[in-house]
Amino acid sequence: MAPVDVTIGRRPDLTGALLGDTDPAAQGGWTDHPPRMGFFTDTSVCIGCKACEVACKEWNAIPEDGLVFTGMSMDNTQGLGADTWRHVAFVEQRKPLAVQDPGVLHEGVDVLALAPQGSGTSPDEAGTTPTTPGDPGDLRWLMASDVCKHCTHAACLDVCPTGSLFRTEFGTVVVQEDICNGCGYCIPACPYGVIDQRKDDGRAWKCTLCYDRLTVGQEPACAKNCPTDSIQFGPLDELRERAGARLASLHDGGVTDARLYGRDPHDGVGGDGAFFLLLDEPEVYGLPPDPVVTTRDLPAMWRRVGAAAATLVGAAVAAFVAGRRI
């Protein structure tokens, strides 16, 4: 079962992109493959220790990503990119975490005047670590570890012109660095802003879901290191089921803000191979609220390209007809 060149001579992802929940590995050309593996990241138990970030870097020998003090709460990593495949977001909010009492009180100063746009304020413009509008005395500190979603319908993979990105037997999406020519197409294609180009070598890099570890039966490095099991790794079916139960128990417990993100196999990317339990809207964590695999619209795009081309031909013919007169 050679993983390379699986895209030659077929159009798996074009049709795949239109079909909702599918078996991505099979579409990638794998027969007799293991179950689809993925992550369920339960951010409600994340303690923001960043062990996942560091473990990922250690295991994959990713270069250091810049020494920048950002002022974004405890996040100095800023986001996913070529040299950050796990990123822990920190969000300070004037919102209650269920009925937790945070003990803090800020009546002396209108902090929201210091950060007028709430958490959407960039640190340069903020007088304080940006905080979502809310009541004084409410505070919760959300932490969430983000990663490549290993989309069922992966735009990065679809648009890759070299076949460098491929679908593994585990249904995950991986870059083959020896094939990538740095065209950069996958980068804006990803609706989540995951994959990126490494400046000094020109290639695109992202989470491999530790393909090398999976193939020898090991758990990914980030999940292995997560002390609170915020990152759970396993067959996607099981994870989806577990996440449902977890959501129910949180709701029962009064954590009504809890929601699942990327679990629905009928969403715009056909469901994420790495999905999340969040405590607020996705955009609060820097995630798109309703992502769509861009190639979903590709057939329509091609149709319009065809029409436009025809229009051009028509215009040219007309120009020669009319050209005699003007």
């Binding site: 986001g79 709430g118 990126d196």
Partner: peptide, 26 residues
């Protein structure tokens, strides 16, 4: 004790105004 600040309903939130997608490297 404290005055509840009047804040306009935020119409849009983001993560520290960071982009959601990675912009093209082109």
């Amino acid at each position: 004790g404290g005055e509840t600040p009047q804040v306009p309903d935020a119409t849009f939130t983001s993560y520290y105004a960071e982009p959601v997608i990675n912009k093209p490297v082109w």
